[in-house]
Design a protein around this nucleic acid. Structure first.
Lengths: 122, 122
DNA sequence: TGAGCCAACTAGGTTAACCATGTTGGCTAC
DNA sequence: GTAGCCAACATGGTTAACCTAGTTGGCTCA
């Protein structure tokens, strides 16, 4: 399936999956085929598929959930390409959320470690 | 060199190189150490270094020239949008990483402080 | 001296294998 | 029937090895 063009296989697979996502063939929330299935489908190796999925993951198009699968991110969550303002806004809310959760955890940790000191292993 | 944080090594190396570039330690146009040197420097494997460099290449921060080396892209070559996009991408991966780690810790705290029903949910 | 060859080094792509970790569903024992 | 165990399967990270292809510098030979 892959090849002819000289473009690396992992980029071709990433392109194809990206097109399927943007085209709606892979609906938001739906899972991608497993890496093993994709490897067979594209007649490639697991490593190449993992690299391709890693690209999409890095782009924020999909979200990998260990043990479950890789799922197409909700389109409403996907900032339009080039919409940097949207991405920044999204990141800002994400950071605020993280800050709140972290503060909450720190408080819990402070009270729990007072009673039950934890080990220092890293 | 790498490790301690739970953050994958290839991301740590990418972060470090990115910081060196943004900080000016690696001047525009100057070459990065070879992958073999980086692997030794970070006490990691060639594959991990190649993945890290691939990330920076994907972000447009560096340009790999086969047979010659990997060079820091001239900042003037990077359009403002591209620069911002790179930073946004960087922030997004950082936020996703933080979110995942925080969620993991929250779950651990929930099970350790409350009861531990553990295995029931599916 | 100059042309050509060649070894060494570089990035990049691919494959295979291994391990860690998480989820799921089925099986078993109580 | 339910709780617990466990195998199967999932993603994710790492390593090693092999290959292709481009660059460079030194060496040899005419």
């Amino acid at each position: 399936m892959v090849k002819h063009t000289g473009r690396p296989g992992y980029l071709q697979i990433a392109d194809d999956l990206r097109a399927q996502i943007r085209g709606g063939a892979l609906a938001p929330g739906s899972p991608l085929p497993s890496t093993a299935q994709l490897a067979e489908e594209y007649d490639s190796s697991l490593s190449v598929v993992k690299m391709a999925v890693g690209i999409l993951r890095n782009e924020g198009l999909v979200i990998g959930q260990q043990g479950k699968g890789v799922f197409v991110r909700d389109t409403s969550d996907i900032p339009a390409a080039g919409d940097l303002a949207g991405e920044v806004a999204e990141l800002r809310t994400a950071v605020q959320d993280l800050s709140a959760r972290l503060a909450k955890m720190e408080e819990q940790l402070a009270t729990s470690t007072a009673r039950r000191p934890s080990r220092g292993s890293r």
